[in-house]
Structure formats: C-alpha cells, structure tokens
Design a protein around this nucleic acid. Sequence first.
DNA 1: GCCCAGGAGAAGG
DNA 2: CCTTCTCATGGG
Length: 295
Amino acid sequence: MKAEERNGAVIIENVSDFDLDNIFDCGQCFRWEKDGQDRYLGTAYGRQAVMEYSKDEELLKVGGASLEDFERIWRRYLDLDRNYGVIKSALAGKDPVMAEAIDFGSGIRILNQEKWETLVSFIISQNNNIPRIKKCIESLAQTLGRRTGQLCGREFFALPDAETLAKAEIEDLAPCRLGYRAKYLIETAKQVAEEGIDSLERLGDEAVSSEECFEALKRYCGVGPKVANCIALFSMGKLDRFPIDVWVKKVMNRLYGIAENDMKEMNRFAEENFGQYGGIAQQYLFYYITHNKEI
DNA sequence: GCCCAGGAGAAGG
DNA sequence: CCTTCTCATGGG
C-alpha cells in the first residue's frame, strides 16, 4: 500500500479491513482518544500522531508524522502489511458465531505495541476497568515520564523507562492511584532493569515460541496467565495467544456454551478452532461482547 | 452500603 | 495440582 506526504501529513491508500474505533477501542491499547471529529490522537514509541480514516475512499491519514516516521514506526504499529481479509475468512468459514463477531468489529487490527509499555500497561490492567486504566497510565507518564512533544494543543509524555521506575518509591507513585499494583510495577521494573531491557525485547523474536514467551513473561511480578497472554499478543507478535478475562469468559459461555469457570476448555476450544489466529479471534469476541448490548 | 473491572499472589489444602 | 482469600481504587 502506497504512502506519500502531503502538506504535513502522511496519506496511505488502499487501506482495507481497518476501522479506528475498532482498533483503538477494543482494549488492546490505552493511549488513544477520539478528539470529537472522528480523529484519534495518541502516542507510541516516543511519538505522537493524529489519525483519520475514510472507509469510502480506503484512505488513512496520519498527521504529526513524517513519511520517515510512518515507514519506521506507524506502518508496523498499525500492522498494515498483514492481510486481515484472509484471516477473517479462515476464522469465519465454519463458525457462524465468529462470522457475526467479525462482521461487528470488521476493522480490528492487532497493534504491534512497545513491549515495556505493554508490560506496564497490563500489570496496571488487572482487576481494573479500561477508563481507569487509561487514567493510571497517563498519570504515570506525566508523573515520571519524559515529555515527547505536543500535537493539536496537547502535551504528550512517554512512560518512564525501567531504570527510572526501578528507582522510584511507592510514595512517588501515589498520585497515579495504582493501588496495590504499584509495588508489582516497581518489582517488575527492578527485574527488567537488572536483566536488561534486551531480555524482554528478545521474547518478541520469531525464534522464541509462543509458549516459551508466555512462560518467560509470567516470571515478572504481577504477570499471570491473562496478562502474559496480552503482552505476548499485543507487543510480541504471538497471534495465537488467547487472553481470558471476565468478558471473554462471558462471551465464551454465551456464544459457545462453555462453563464460565472452565478455562482449560476455553483454551482447548480456542486452540482447536482458532489455531494460529486465536488472539485475533479473541479480539473480535472481546469487542463484540463489550460493545453489543444485545448479547 | 454493594458489586464490578482486560487478575495475580499467598496460603492452605 | 487445585481452591479460596485478599489486595486499592473509583464508578454505577
């Protein structure tokens, strides 16, 4: 798909299977907000951008970014080089339930997020709700993070790196209202700082199997099965991981008739029916149950 | 006041 | 291996 720079923004043509509401409001990321005119303003990889999409023209506009930024960061972040049409057909083929969920959130894409940020974000996410998770993360960035710039009249801050967070005390995090998760975060930061950020980054290598990645992530304090799966899926390209939270339990029960506390059966079902794209299937189901009052 | 949210750690079987 | 209890916080 072709990208070119026109008066301060990057325009990308022929972008299909794409919807900003679906992508930024399906629970995978926490740092994008709609600005009131169907544009999303947010940050990743130490940059900020404003995105706008026209479904009719299949045109994506990324403002606040150079063409170089787009090719270096946003193309991969938005997973633009993956053919979701093929994946959706494979998932919907023999599963009318999944076909319905895919139709409902047909523009979902799995972002390739920063690993450290995703680790931090999903430690904060445990036993928490999305609006408050967003507040906690923004507050953490503003309290201890570095200012990365401004766009559309807003200031943006990156999350503090592992070294910075490792040196922080619980009281330093008090303004962020993280609750009992604050000590998990500092403990994990110490471990990452100690082992080196590379040991975390390496888990995203293709040579590292999905299972190996999952087990390694669970070594961090505050990271259990659900959070490990989210990190592996949203920042390490392990598309088969199938995070099970309270919503996925509900949707698996209502749509597939699996007992609400039978995690083993849910995992088995996902592996058998969704296979290598279990994580993408999970996102369609999560979006479906969290945005559709009918079910 | 109660229940809930993209759960995990600790303790006890 | 499994089950149960506890852990802050804010919104409904």
